[in-house]
Design a protein around this nucleic acid. Structure first.
Lengths: 235, 235
DNA sequence: GTCTATAAACGGATAGAC
DNA sequence: GTCTATCCGTTTATAGAC
């Protein structure tokens, strides 16, 4: 039998099949420039394939965008659910530790799979961008493919944070997604805060390590009081 | 003198001047579709002005984008700095309460100016989108116009959170901006978590009220330990 | 499956009449 | 300042040779 399966080769200029080359080029360019600003010509140039290949293999640009997401979202979410399954069966019905839940969600998002493949890390960043895209299109794909995962994590969080109402929990998850997306979608934004170079850079594990305590503390904050805030006073 | 200045009129179909009509149409459409996906033809149709008017009044599409931001960013940041100035002079050198600082920053972003103008609220959402745009272009504008404000708030936070290293603080501010941007850039994303309608909707004051405790608790979390996390174990 | 060539529509920008 | 008409490059998508 053959020595090494072709798809596991990571050598430079690995001669992949055309659809894969297109998917990966699109992933990189969508991340860098956004969806609307990335043309099929840019993609086919980056992938070093013919312009007509995209329509031949995927049908249209929109279909390509969808394909970029569906290819990775399935495995990623299976991994997240598997991680949560294992944790819950170990706990035998008891609420999980908050940090464990968040780490299972966030960690899976940042350091994927065997982690040898850095395409997965690129995709994690792309996910961050996708969540901040205009409604419709990409967002619907994400909603449909993620709803099961979100449902499961919401249930786990609900047990771990009994002091929060269902509504409050939904908001806090929203805020959590915000921090994760923003952080995932590229460390460029960090320059807005720190113009100097950061010492530990943007290595995924480091980011997760810094993000975790922030998110857990935020989630555990006392429930919101329903009195008018200071800002409500007229100016 | 005249009874009511024209610019304070809020009557329906107020016949504004062409540049303002364009700026406000652009604001709405950029928010809804993103920058690259919004064409000048869409803008001029929405504003009910002639296509050539954009180039006549602003010079180019890029210049229009810049104008959309600079028009509102100046007043908004003056307001933020003024708010912080007042708080700091009251405190007479003592560190400000964390919640006060965050509220000054975030509150100004959500409920703007006299608050009668809901254009300002639209802009707050647009800001959220802009922060998650690809690097270059819009981001440079934001960086330049916001660096003074960020510097001031960073200094205030540093005094209020002495247990954090400079580096840790920068990361936490990054996470805070993430939650704010994501939350600002439209409540549509909330549907990803809660498919049902939320009872208190997306009224700015409510959002701020819910966001504040989350962010403050996150900022106050203990500093990150520099040991390997649970996830570091091989699978 | 891959290529060239081209269709058909849309993008930003401008010239010139009014 | 506002309008029409138009230039010209780019876009997605397809037809048809190989």
């Amino acid at each position: 039998m053959a020595a090494i399966p072709i798809k596991n080769r990571l050598s430079p200029k690995a001669p992949q099949d055309t659809p894969s080359r297109i998917l990966e080029a699109a992933e990189r360019l969508f991340l860098q420039h956004g969806f609307a600003a990335t043309s099929m010509r840019m993609i086919t140039a980056e992938a070093e394939v013919n312009l007509a290949a995209v329509n031949y293999h995927f049908g249209s640009k929109d279909a390509l965008i969808e394909a970029v997401f569906t290819r990775r979202l399935g495995p990623l979410n299976r991994q997240r659910l598997g991680h949560l399954d294992r944790l819950e069966s170990l706990a035998e019905g008891a609420p999980l530790k908050l940090e464990t839940i968040v780490e299972a969600f966030i960690g899976s998002a940042f350091v994927n799979e065997g982690s040898a493949n850095d395409g997965a890390r690129l995709f994690a960043q792309l996910l961050g961008r996708a969540y901040s895209e205009p409604s419709g299109g990409v967002r619907d794909i994400l909603y449909n493919q993620n709803k099961e995962v979100i449902k499961r994590f919401k249930a786990a969080l609900k047990k771990a944070l009994p002091h929060l109402s269902a509504e409050e929990l939904v908001w806090r998850m929203h805020f959590v997604f915000g921090s994760i997306s923003y952080t995932q979608s590229g460390t460029d934004a960090l320059r807005l805060v720190a113009k100097y170079e950061l010492s530990d850079g943007s290595y995924p594990q480091t980011v997760v390590k810094r993000l975790l305590p922030f998110l857990c503390a935020g989630l555990q904050a006392p429930a919101t009081m329903h009195a008018p805030t200071v800002l409500a006073k007229v100016s």
